[in-house]
Simulated scan of single mutants.
Amino acid sequence: MMNQYKNLIVEMINSKVVVLKVNRPQARNALDTNLIMELSEAVAKVNAMEEIAVVILTGVEKVFIAGVDIKDLIGISVSQAFQIASKMKALRNEIIHSSKLFIAAINGYCLGGGLELALVCDIRIAQTNAKFGLPEINLGIIPGGGGVSLLSEIVGSAMARKMIFTGEIFSAHKAMEVKIISDIFEHVLEEGVLLAQSLSLKSQTAIAAAKRVMNSGVLQGNEVYLEKELYEFSFLFDYPDSVEGMGAFLEKRKPSFKN
């Protein structure tokens, strides 16, 4: 694959393993419209390459993905919010329905939309200093890319409610305790590459079949839930709390919600 992207580095480890490395360090690897489009294009290309077996998703420097870029969200309309959430949904579906295995090698902050992308990866491993969370509630909005439904599926309703309602940021050890990740490593990308190389030697037909079975159970139970989440996220942009929350974030002050 040619690395023709502005905010994404594509590295071929060998003929079967590829690394997609988010590269927006100036914005803590936050997802803007262009980056979402680049990721979608890269994932679609990988999915079309028969020889690729495993894809590793990670970020440059000390950040995985620190959510959606707030500058892209503040002051937008309901329809614009819906369009952004729909693009995230399309990217999420490219990963879920892929026959390839996706490994999230979480090397730092994994927040909001970043955590939502990690949650649809087949295997999630993290660096010792990684941080996790869905802090959207502090911005006057909710996760709109599957975070509410997918987190509930993985950690259970009680824990998901606490994490989403408080917007807490938690450690890799907490993430492992509640089963968001499977392993913690000091050098997560190196370990991810070793794991990917091992998995690439397995029967890809069998792996794809197992992935379809596991994902079908989750998706069949959550499809209505996921659609509801998308709409609820979008409609919140019609309320002043969303403007106040995101404005306060950009101005580095505490929000004053009018409710």
Rank of each mutant, 00 (worst) to 15 (best):
F257W: 10
S86H: 05
I9L: 10
A66F: 05
H173L: 06
A44H: 10
V55N: 00
I125T: 00
K202H: 11
G144F: 11
M49D: 15
V243D: 11
Q197P: 02
F170P: 02
L189I: 13
K211S: 11
G192F: 00
L250V: 15
T33C: 05
S149I: 08
K252R: 15
N138W: 06
V188N: 04
L236D: 02
M246G: 06
S203C: 10
A175G: 08
E186P: 11
P143W: 10
E168Q: 12
Q220V: 11
L150H: 10
Q26W: 08
N259D: 14
I181T: 03
D32R: 01
K252D: 12
I154Y: 01
D72I: 03
K228S: 15
N14T: 07
D72L: 06
R124N: 07
L199S: 05
Y109P: 05
N259Y: 14
Q4V: 15
V193G: 02
V148S: 05
A90M: 13
K211C: 09
Y239K: 12
L73D: 08
E191I: 01
D238E: 09
V155G: 02
V63P: 00
M49C: 11
H173P: 03
G221D: 13
I169E: 04
Y239S: 08
L219S: 03
S242R: 07
E168S: 11
T58V: 03
L236T: 09
K252Q: 15
Q80H: 07
L73I: 09
L39E: 01
E186M: 05
